[in-house]
């Protein structure tokens, strides 16, 4: 069970959060490149190790945040607010 340190609400149970997926994906700038678009939508690094990912504190402050979490130990290295998403 995860205990996620929310920057606003402090350490809270994973029950209050919703997972939002891989936070390293960057929307391709070039338009009309279908292969790049397909790769962006479907391909994932899926690392066995540290994973940068979105979570939203749905039953708390409702803010989106970026969590760096280990996919084997589930340890959380850092949490920051997702302010400027992939700009």
């Amino acid at each position: 069970m995860l205990l996620i340190p929310c920057p606003f609400c402090g350490p809270r149970s994973e029950d209050e959060f919703t997972f939002g997926g891989d936070a390293t994906l960057v929307t391709p700038k070039e338009e009309g490149n279908i292969e790049a678009a397909a790769d962006h939508i479907f391909l994932r690094d899926n690392p066995k190790g540290w994973h940068k990912e979105y979570w939203v504190h749905r039953y708390g402050c409702r803010r989106w945040m970026i969590v760096v979490r280990h996919t084997v130990t589930h340890k959380i290295k850092s949490v920051s607010l997702a302010t400027a998403i992939n700009q």
């Binding site: 994973e14 996919t71 589930h74």
Partner: peptide, 13 residues
Amino acid sequence: DGYNSYSQRGTWP
């Protein structure tokens, strides 16, 4: 469970 994991152990919720 709903988030990426290779841990082979589930969570309580």
